[in-house]
Computed example of a mutant assay.
Amino acid sequence: MTTIETHAPELLTVGEAAELSGTATSAIRFYERQGLIESQRTSGNQRRYQPWVPCVVRVARVAQRVGLSVQEIAKVLEDVPDEPTPEDWQRLTDHLIADAERRIAELHAVLADLKSETKRCDLPGR
């Protein structure tokens, strides 16, 4: 975390980041502890976030719903530049869509296997 001397208007407070991302402030702090986002500190030791942090948080929440772990999300976010463009967000969205579709296909295969007549095990005496 870096320290900033004055509050630049483009930086967000933890409350603003939470509101814009649709989460609680505790979620913002959680994602920060996990290394998905970073804050800067004011001379009064208050957190300030870049304006794209709410997007990162919204993406992380969707990625968790897809089934990615926080570590997997961090790996996906490694390719997002410090000042992301709409094209960067679209590439990330496309990646998450492909991952969700792959996971759905895997679950359909498991479901088909479970519904098949194949015995999972033979219990003695049954």
Rank of each mutant, 00 (worst) to 15 (best):
Y49M: 01
L111P: 06
D79Q: 06
R48E: 01
A8V: 08
V80D: 02
E117W: 14
V14P: 02
R41I: 13
E5Y: 15
T6V: 14
Q40G: 03
T6M: 04
V62S: 04
H7W: 14
T118I: 13
V53Y: 02
A63S: 12
L96V: 03
S39T: 04
A100V: 05
P9R: 07
D88P: 04
E5C: 13
T23F: 05
I97Y: 08
L114G: 15
T42F: 04
E101A: 11
E38H: 09
G22L: 07
L77A: 07
T93I: 12
E83L: 13
E83I: 11
C121E: 15
Y49W: 07
D88M: 06
L123R: 09
C55G: 06
K119M: 11
T85L: 05
Q64C: 07
I104V: 15
Y49F: 08
P9G: 13
G44L: 04
A105S: 14
A60S: 08
G125N: 09
L68G: 04
G35Y: 06
L92C: 05
L20N: 06
A8Q: 10
A109Y: 11
N45E: 13
T3H: 03
I97A: 14
D79G: 15
W89I: 02
P54M: 08
Y31M: 00
E78R: 11
V57A: 07
T13C: 01
P81F: 03
A112L: 10
H108R: 14
K115V: 05
R47L: 01
P86V: 09
P84V: 02
S69C: 06
E72K: 01
A74F: 07
A63M: 07
G15T: 06
A63V: 05
G15V: 09
R120Y: 15
K115P: 09
E101I: 01
A74D: 11
P84Q: 02
P84Y: 10
D122E: 15
R120L: 12
G15L: 07
S21I: 03
V62N: 02
I37L: 01
E72M: 04
L36F: 04
A100H: 08
G35M: 08
V76P: 00
R48H: 06
L123F: 12
V80W: 02
E78F: 00
T85N: 09
R33T: 15
L111F: 13
L20Y: 06
Q71A: 14
L36W: 00
E72C: 04
L96D: 01
E117T: 13
G22N: 03
P124Q: 05
L92D: 00
V14M: 00
T93G: 08
P84W: 05
G67Y: 14
A27V: 04
T13E: 01
G35P: 01
E5D: 14
T42P: 05
T6N: 10
R33E: 10
Q50V: 08
T118P: 00
A74S: 11
G44N: 12
E38T: 09
R48D: 05
T93M: 09
R120I: 14
A24F: 09
R48Q: 03
D122F: 15
T25G: 07
L77P: 03
A98H: 10
E19A: 12
P124E: 08
A112Q: 13
L12R: 02
A74I: 09
I4H: 10
A18I: 06
A74H: 06
A100E: 12
R120T: 11
P9M: 07
Q64W: 12
V14Y: 04
V70R: 01
P84F: 05
P86Y: 02
L11H: 10
W52I: 11
